[in-house]
Design a protein around this nucleic acid. Structure first.
Lengths: 215, 215, 215, 215
DNA sequence: AATGAATGAGCCTTCATTCAT
DNA sequence: CATGAATGAAGGCTCATTCAT
């Protein structure tokens, strides 16, 4: 698991990263002062500068570690989910939904504050962003080649699917109407419809029951 | 067209709003200083305070006027597009795509900076946001009742459709691969697939030709 | 007179320059905070940034204006003091002594804080520093050519003379033992001795009476 | 040689003093951070606090040890150079020139940063400064009494001589035009001229040959 | 209709310093 | 001996805002 040893050995740093994540997520990068972050972490203002050279570097670290968590898990999941692009997409969408919900704040920062990085650091983050997009695009395009996805606009369809998955952290609330499992269900459903997956041979195990609404 | 008389009679105000739109869009509300805005408008710093009581008010004005433009046009379009929810949705999605592209900067501000409003002003903007969402939701739910849209998850489907339409201002570039008309085409296509519109009776005029890729 | 119109039209700026001069002189550039300067000027901290882009720019302005005052007057004095290098040197040394005493604080800043300028600004100040040194060197070398100064080491002699003149602002106090006029007397005397001016034909008017010690 | 045993037994301390000397010399006391010094010494920040109670104390130590080196050697040299004030002055000026060149950085700190000491420590350093000045003044005044120096302004002449000697560390560079030996020659020459030493009985051994310019 | 001058609060960052280990 | 972790104070600078003109 990522960051475990660091979390254990450098609690101050981990506390600051968590605080930065929370604060950047709710106030935005520019709206969050390092005083806000330090206070949220229960440390002094200067502590941030002991662990991070600058506010920009803290943001970069946050974004990159979130990307790396995402990419690491996504790769693992793709390798476990067989050759069929449909099962791969199913697993991938379910993972993205889970990840965007579980790492809601990190995802918000990654999705909305990356462009606040200065050019040099932006490039570093952008590389991961591209890798992340290519991962999904790769699965879809393979599915199109295999004839499983029949959308006439694969490129834009990928963007649309990614867009509605990425919007999750913007509105999801733990006390909301739907559970993460139900959201997995719905979002994979949407993705398959949008990509115009051939309907008859749906190989997804839980696809039959749409999942009851939570009480 | 909204704001014409104002534009004619108070050029300074219009220049400032345009500058604020551009600046908030590219730097974010907190990252944009009123000096940035005044400079972009070619006016002095104090001019902004002649036209707007505060930075917050400029943001509110920007967001509300964009919402009002959107809502005004959207209502008109719905009224012109018959009773059938499918033709209404078609017209509505096409309008949203056009609007998000044509008012790219205003939309970015509206979509990403609304939450920077203080509670009092947020409420004012939120009302329009809700009206805007209800408008789309209304069309879809009517379509579901009419049996034209067969998605099992209408509420979430609306959110998904809105999400991918709203992501347009985040990546659209005038020198991009696809023209606005092509994007209209694709996004209505996606919306109909995602909502699981009954395929045989597609009444959309331009739906047959997917639109050639621009050279 | 330098700066008169500015002094009259922008009193805040002049007050800040005076305060910066005094503060840099007593605490050094790095030891003086802009809060110190603003307080000394009776203005707010931010006022400094209304008139100067940065602390470095305030230092540069201070140094350059002092240099320019010096160079302007020095040139005028040389033109008024005939062709003979001895009378020129006499006038010049007397002026330097007067200037270093009258502009004690500005001179301290100029002499000790110039090297705190960043490379870009340092170059600008250095040009004036060189002009200033060349001015004196020119007079001495002409005197050597004319045979009036017989020192075997003209270059180093110039440096020595400049050095002891420039040390004036480091120790001079208004309540000291010697008046400015007496110091003029002594320092020209020293300069002539050090340069080994031919003794018999001393043309300096006041050279005969060494000036009584003040009570 | 002073500090040998300490240098051998406490290399960290010596490294820090050297680093402090270099750093204070180039950046000034206030412009030098203790991080700069520790880094220059290749030690950790806290190491400085192991050897010195504070930054002020490091400065004081630096200044006092430089003064003590100077005074110790100066006294020894005076005792070796006979009764005649002229030979004493010759030896003393030559020593000062050598010292200011060899201990260029220490001298810069001593001459320019002493006034950054807080009042309590300033007093300690000031005592040595006075001792140092009295030493030179004593020689000159004795020479005046003996009739060897005929300057009408002995007090100010001392200041002038000290001033040009002390300016050496401000401009001397090892790759400069003149060797230390040549500078000894010139500066004693200047001192004798400025003090108006009786010309005929010059007893200085090397005074005849002004010293060739280095290639 | 618009501006120049000025401000207080707050920004990110660096400082000298401490202390447990 | 020496360090890593942490801090309060202060650093230079920018902020949104005001107000007389």
């Amino acid at each position: 698991m990522a960051g475990t040893s660091e979390t254990r050995t450098r609690p101050g740093r981990a506390a600051l990263l968590t605080a930065a994540r929370r604060t950047f997520s709710s106030k935005g990068y520019d709206g969050a002062s390092i005083r806000d972050i330090a206070q949220e972490a229960g440390l002094s203002l200067s502590a941030l500068y002991y662990y991070f050279p600058s506010k920009q570097d803290a943001l970069l670290e946050l974004i990159c570690s979130t990307f790396d968590d995402f990419l690491g898990s996504a790769h693992a999941i793709l390798q476990e989910s067989g050759e069929d692009a449909r099962s791969q997409l199913d697993a991938l969408i379910r993972f993205i939904v889970r990840f965007r919900i579980a790492n809601r704040e990190g995802s918000r920062v990654l999705l909305r504050e990356t462009e606040r990085l200065d050019p040099e650091r932006l490039e570093i983050a952008r590389a991961r962003q591209i890798a992340s997009n290519e991962l999904i695009k790769g699965v879809v395009l393979r599915g199109v080649e295999q004839g499983h996805f029949r959308t006439p606009y694969p490129e834009e369809a990928v963007r649309a699917v990614v867009s509605f998955c990425n919007s999750l952290p913007l509105w999801y609330r733990e006390d909301g109407r739907l559970s993460p499992a139900q959201l997995e269900e719905r979002y994979t459903h949407f993705a398959f419809r949008l990509l115009e997956a051939e309907p008859e041979t749906s190989c997804r195990p839980g696809a039959a029951s749409p999942g009851a609404v939570r009480t």
